[in-house]
């Protein structure tokens, strides 16, 4: 009996050290037993009251932050966040090269991103296809804009085409010099 009481007192001491005197915070499985001990044992009661008094001291120093002070601080935080966003957007804008084509691509991507619901899901599902299509379009435009690059691709195409024909094996120079092959 005494050994059991000593064990219970030791457990109460530990629980008070860890969780404090608020029994609602004790482990549910042992709460009832410990409260019974406190109500029936003078030493347990003393331990509990000491702990409770310390917690009352701590509670006297609880922080109460006034609504007015919080409101002012919240306004400052919102203003800071808005300023940070503006700076971020300005930096992003500066980092975008001043090229109409780049701006168009970024605008297109932004539009895709902004699509909600099905549009967004569509863009997500077909991103690879869309990317390939965009790359082909860009390549086509570039080739079209650049005459020498266009000639090069035309020649490469002719070589590849004639390579496949029986009895025909033109050199690259032939094609480059415009020699009639057929």
């Amino acid at each position: 009996m005494t050994q059991n009481r000593d064990q219970q007192l030791a457990r109460l001491k530990t629980v008070l050290q860890l969780y404090g005197a608020d029994s609602d915070r004790w482990l549910g499985a042992e709460r009832q037993g410990l409260l019974e001990l406190v109500s029936t044992d003078s030493q347990a009661k003393r331990m509990f009251e000491d702990c409770k008094a310390l917690e009352d001291c701590l509670d006297a120093a609880a922080e109460t932050v006034g609504a007015k002070a919080l409101s002012g601080l919240a306004s400052r935080i919102m203003a800071q966040a808005a300023m940070a966003s503006q700076e971020h957007r300005a930096q992003e804008k500066e980092s975008i090269p001043d090229k109409p084509f780049t701006r168009s691509v970024l605008a297109g991507l932004s539009w895709l991103k902004s699509l909600g619901g099905d549009g967004g899901q569509f863009a997500g599902r077909h991103m690879a296809s869309l990317s390939l299509l965009a790359a082909c379009l860009v390549l086509g435009v570039l080739i079209g804009m650049n005459e020498s690059l266009g000639n090069y691709f035309q020649q490469e195409f002719q070589l590849a085409f004639f390579d496949g024909m029986p009895g025909s094996n033109p050199s690259f120079e032939d094609v480059l010099l415009g020699t009639e092959i057929l």
Binding site: L16, Q17, D56, C57
Partner: peptide
């Protein structure tokens, strides 16, 4: 808690 109990002994008592 053990430290505060010693430091604030007059207060909590």
């Amino acid at each position: 808690r053990a430290t505060l109990k010693k430091m604030l002994v007059r207060e909590w008592r």
